[in-house]
Design a protein around this nucleic acid. Structure first.
Lengths: 336, 336
DNA sequence: CTGGATCGTCGAATCGTTTCGACGATCTTC
DNA sequence: GAAGATCGTCGAAACGATTCGACGATCCAG
């Protein structure tokens, strides 16, 4: 293995000079720098990560805790993870993958052993045992999602309440007067995951505000459940003309179900979804949707972490504004 | 931060004794060990990862390279990643996440900087620029999937050829004489990803061997494409009674398409798929399938790596035998 | 009972960086 | 042209573990 002393000797300088040339923490003359860089390339030198971490007390590694639970849409989580890795690399950091089931101990382990400099935690719940831990830890962290009490933590997420609101407003603007929300699987609400509830809040409040009739149903992530919910919605609200879906795998089956019940989309029924663009676009009738900007959230989470590592103050809460893309699935309310 | 000398002082022993008590590399008396363990708990000591890596030249971190490409089924990749993390933890290792796009440089970086001890590479292609690199690297690696030339590498995967064979044999045994294969998206074959081609080989060879009429069509991962392929298959082979699907997102749409073309599954048409159990089970008509054992592959890959790290010889190639689960979608050939 | 293993522990060297203080040399500024 | 900054570099001291050789004590075999 080639080490910094080898490079130093080869370039005719001292090891510390090589280090400074690499880190830029002290000025190095143009000419010396070039000589050092040439030696590095020629010898194929790579700083030893462990030695570097030991000396600098920075590992340049971020921990990412990914969820495993049912009810979360896997491709979204994956996209998010990829975006974290990509962004981290742009800041010269790597990403250590932890699973939810490692729990508190896992977080404490990687933090206390200085294996990672900072942590990103996905899918936090309203009351999450990890919150206390994260607050106590001497390493910065960023949460994806908002717990009930976010004091002393840094959180970022799509503004799901605004997303629910935007969907209803889109439908209201098109003249719809009777709307329904098809939500995530029941267990998602049961375990008090903030984002799902926030959609419901935004949806319900806005519907009321606009004087619309509305109802809300959780829905398992299966076509069968979708058919059932579709039928139930129509039974309860025969005048239904607008539906908001917050449940990725069910968007398409739900449309199929409505059509089999005799409703044409968007002629008789307008559909709006909160889902990734890929899902919205790949359906036979492309769906008007609010995207879940996983890539942006990931990138922003990393930025926040980098700032915190640099001791720059950052906002406690970052809510990304929803952007609605109108597609073929929504239209003005049928004249009839 | 509490360090090993603190523990040593607290327990009244030397630092090296603490180290040996922790690693078990030399015998330590029962009583001393207990005293040390008590001190560790009391002080909340965690060995500094960097220092440990530096002194032992072992980081206890594995690199995992995940694919980003289109055409691979994301939940499968995710399941696999989770299983790698879980298994690694059981061997006291952590997992560093790399993306495909980091490419050769990324692999070299983490390997040469001693950031990781070993590497797992998913989704290798038949001829992959990383192969040369992996062979040259001084760190052990395991590939998921088989390249064209696997000499000097350790590879593991489901035996996709046997999977193709098993599907055809299942259909042949049920009396079917005319079968079709609906494959992955064309780009998967174009980029020469071994596993997809191997299914085709197993399928075609076995069909021929049993004297069956057969045909093969790649298929984009959309319902529209599924409908198109279904129609085309029936046009080409009006006597078609058995279909093998190797394309997760299309299994359900394909069944729907066939039924809309007037064929009842499994009365008129038997379907067999190569896909995760969750996909096979969640469809209205549960599908006879060969599972992709991502969890097992992940666990086995980690085991192999651990053995290689311990300088235990391991087989070059590990092919997992396919297991076919009969479900509602396949039945004996219609009488006439 | 004696000589050679084995057991349990210690001290010191080592791993490969970063970083701090120091020190000439060069550059400003009045 | 003297005093003080700044520039560019060096040497040496961390950083916090692991591991090797050594050494007294205990055990066992002949």
């Amino acid at each position: 293995m080639v080490k910094i002393t080898d490079v130093a000797r080869h370039a005719g300088v001292s090891p510390s000079t090589v280090s400074y040339a690499l880190s830029g923490k002290r000025p190095i003359s143009e000419e010396t720098r070039r000589r050092i860089e040439a030696s590095i390339r020629e010898l194929g030198y790579r700083p030893h990560a462990g030695a570097r971490a030991l000396a600098s007390s920075r590992s340049n590694v971020l921990a990412l805790v990914i969820p495993l639970r049912t009810g979360i849409h896997v491709p979204v989580a994956m996209q998010f993870a990829v975006s974290v890795v990509t962004s981290a690399r742009q800041h010269d950091h790597d990403v250590l993958l932890l699973t939810q089931e490692e729990g508190d101990d896992g977080l404490r382990r990687v933090a206390d052993s200085a294996l990672v400099d900072a942590l990103i935690v996905m899918d936090v719940q309203l009351r999450d045992s990890r919150l206390t831990l994260l607050r106590a830890l001497d390493r910065p962290s960023v949460l994806i999602g908002f717990p009930a009490e976010s004091e002393g933590l840094t959180c970022i997420d799509l503004d799901f309440e605004a997303a629910g609101r935007a969907c209803v407003e889109h439908l209201a603007l098109l003249g719809h007067r009777c709307v329904g929300l098809v939500g995530s699987p029941p267990e998602v609400y049961a375990r008090e995951t903030g984002f799902a509830q926030r959609v419901v809040q935004g949806f319900t409040a806005t519907a009321q505000q606009h004087g619309l009739t509305s109802s809300f149903h959780p829905c398992e992530a299966t076509p069968a459940a979708a058919r059932q919910v579709a039928a139930q919605l129509l039974r309860e609200q025969p005048a239904l003309t607008g539906v908001v879906v917050h449940n990725e795998p069910v968007v398409e089956p739900l449309i199929e179900a409505f059509e089999q019940l005799g409703l044409r989309v968007p002629r008789d029924l307008s559909i709006t979804a909160i889902c990734p663009d890929e899902v919205a676009e790949q359906i036979r009738i492309p769906v008007t949707s609010i995207a879940i900007p996983s890539a942006e959230i990931g990138a922003r989470a990393v930025e926040l972490l980098m700032q915190k590592l640099d001791r720059v103050a950052v906002p406690n809460a970052t809510l990304l504004a929803p952007r609605l893309t109108a597609r073929a699935s929504s239209a003005p309310r049928p004249a009839h």
